[in-house]
Write a protein that binds this DNA or RNA. Structure first.
Lengths: 213, 213
DNA sequence: TATTATTTCATAAATATTTCACGGATTTTG
DNA sequence: CAAAATCCGTGAAATATTTATGAAATAATA
């Protein structure tokens, strides 16, 4: 469940934002001051924070700066949602460490899209380590290793490409000539089917050795 | 060196953007069509892309969608820079997988700040501390020294850059050509793999000598 | 110039990739 | 049905690529 913290001293704005985001199936927490935000953040770190700038006591810019100095909150995406709309304001907000800046009054559709873009970006990087899982096999493209249950096996790069292709096309009958094109990038009708067999054999040997350990 | 690719069919806009970004000490590549952008991206992946929407042949939205389907370009931050300014346009652009959306005519200061915010977000996760610790190794970027347990070893600057890169990417399989680009900043497919090996060897010698002391 | 750092070259060893050869099982074909 | 062709597993050899190691050439620095 994606969790969003919204901080604004205007109860009406806060309610609107809360309603819209809940409709999007986000889990929303609403607070009306920087102090409350801080005490919430001590307990848990949301996936994204919406922040007003003009607030009594501590303003949004100050809060944002403060958070960015704390290593726990460095990855937290922050989106300013504020009536201050001059170029200087925008630049100031972004320079304080925010990730996006939306001016009130805002179009709900745009706010939704910008929130989605920020969240997407967050998950995009994590997903990027390209692990592919299928039954007991877990394939990691960074380390070039296969984990079978939890035992790791070292693969060569061709074996890795082949296994990855097979795992990406499970339950499919793949002819040698198809694999030569897909994995080895040979032109059609070139390449030796023996090549595929040799590698399939080596793969099997390594994987089977892993299983009964 | 941070590298930015700007794509726009309007030569004037392109020139302005190029000039401004070069002033910010970015390395900028300017192209005037989606096709040119694609052929550039085949060769190298920049740190950020600025993209116009309305272009002859392939438009920016299509290009963006296409890139997001390719795992190599999933992490690439994309910022739309376009005259299409309705809420629907913005939502459409962000939904196509972009990270930000700036409307022409734009304030240069805002564009700068938004670019900086996107880039900052990219580097934010990799902690850029002066000292980096991994297992027994502690690397200090100020003094160019490595402490192994508590014995210090003197490294040359290339060795230091290499070791730092390796420590920042633990458990990853890194090819010599990858390292030539990442550590030596050679263009793709240039540089001698022997170079990497020579330095790896020297590093090993120094580190291993440190361990059995 | 002397010293050190960086890069290139040469060669051997290790590994990875590809090709070849044989035999049994299965399928195709006359 | 039987001969021929094909498929698939296996052993092994040939080739290519990568890696380790010694050493020398070039570049940078003091």
């Amino acid at each position: 469940m994606v969790q969003i913290l919204a901080v604004d001293d205007d109860a009406e704005v806060l309610a609107t934002v809360g309603r819209v985001l809940k409709n999007e199936a986000y889990e929303v927490t609403l607070v009306n001051s920087a102090a409350q935000a801080l005490s919430f953040l001590e307990k848990q770190i949301p996936d994204l924070m919406l922040l007003d700038i003009i607030m009594p006591e501590m303003d949004g810019i100050t809060l944002c700066r403060k958070l960015r100095e704390d290593s726990r909150f460095i990855p937290l995406p922050i989106l300013f949602l504020t009536a201050k709309g001059s170029t200087d304001d925008i630049v100031g907000g972004l320079d304080a460490g925010a990730d996006d800046y939306v001016i009130k009054p805002f179009e709900l559709a745009e706010l939704r899209a910008r929130i989605a873009a920020l969240l997407r970006r967050g998950t995009r990087d994590k997903k990027n380590d390209a692990v592919l899982q299928l039954n007991d096999l877990r394939l990691d493209s960074d380390t070039y290793q296969v984990y079978i249950d939890d035992f790791s096996i070292q693969l060569t790069s061709t074996e890795h490409r082949l296994l990855r292709y097979l795992m990406e096309h499970p339950n499919q009958a793949l002819s040698p000539s198809h694999l030569l094109q897909a994995v080895w990038e040979y032109p059609p009708n070139t390449g030796d089917p023996d090549l595929v067999r040799a590698h399939v054999r080596n793969l099997r040997a390594k994987i089977e050795k892993g299983t009964h350990r």
